[in-house]
Design a protein around this nucleic acid. Structure first.
Lengths: 138, 138
DNA sequence: CGGGATCCTTAGCGATACTG
DNA sequence: CAGTATCGCTAAGGATCCCG
């Protein structure tokens, strides 16, 4: 989200291709990805178009508001295509653009990384916190 | 960051491996990645250990505070190793753990995606905004 | 059904000053 | 040098109600 409210910042971005440069276009693209929701929405759309309610069900913990905002932002940046068949009752579908699909390839890798390595992270956290607790007691 | 302040939530997380489940450990791992900073810090450490000041210089736009917080969070989760040679003047180095390196592999893919495709995103945004403006004028 | 509009709370984060 | 501590703002995002 947010991007839609930052037209100023977006316009000020220099069109350079190094993510380490603050305020360049590449960094802006990266910020679109960051935030957990894009990392879940785009992979969720990989197996085919989905509707609002379906995404709400599939992506645990997301609110209606944030889902709408994020989808709009993704649509604005050309990653998602919103198709509104103008019927009653309403029927709106979201699907990946070619660009969005290419990004989702990279994102599912991340998702799988998280799913594979979370036990190691959990263990590391416990170790770290135990050390801290010992240090605090001295 | 944040993770260190959410020991409660972390403890409540069910140890399940599907990122689409809210509040599972895999999701927690994903949230560690989300936020743009981890996506920049971990790749920045790929070519070798770096110090605080070096990271501040390399990663444009990050503040001292956020850098410290993020590094601590990454360290806590076992992705980064902090080495404090206890000398004067101070000398602290950060480097990737094996786990952190494996994650950075996935992250550099994202960074490169952003660097390659930002023109397409920029173009899409302009198109979208132009359409919106037309619609608003009617 | 798929949102928009509001209100409201909090976390994120910058700025600044201080310390071993 | 590499942080910690404090203040203060802003904006992300939840909850709720409404609408075509």
């Amino acid at each position: 989200m947010s991007t839609s409210l930052r037209s100023e910042a977006a316009r000020a971005a220099t069109p350079v291709g190094n993510v380490f440069d603050a305020n360049c276009s590449a960094r802006h693209a990266l910020e679109l990805i960051s935030g957990k929701w894009a990392m879940l929405i785009l992979p969720a759309l990989r197996e085919g178009p989905m509707r609002n309610a379906g995404l709400l069900r599939k992506i645990g913990g997301i609110s209606q508001k944030v889902l709408t905002e994020t989808l709009r932002d993704l649509e604005r940046n050309g990653l998602v295509i919103r198709e509104d068949r103008r019927t009653m009752p309403l029927h709106v579908e979201y699907r990946l653009s070619a660009l969005g699909r290419s990004l989702s390839d990279a994102l599912v890798v991340l998702d799988r990384w998280a799913e594979q390595h979370f036990p190691a992270l959990d263990a590391a956290r416990e170790r770290y916190d135990a050390l801290i607790r010992r240090a605090r007691v001295e």
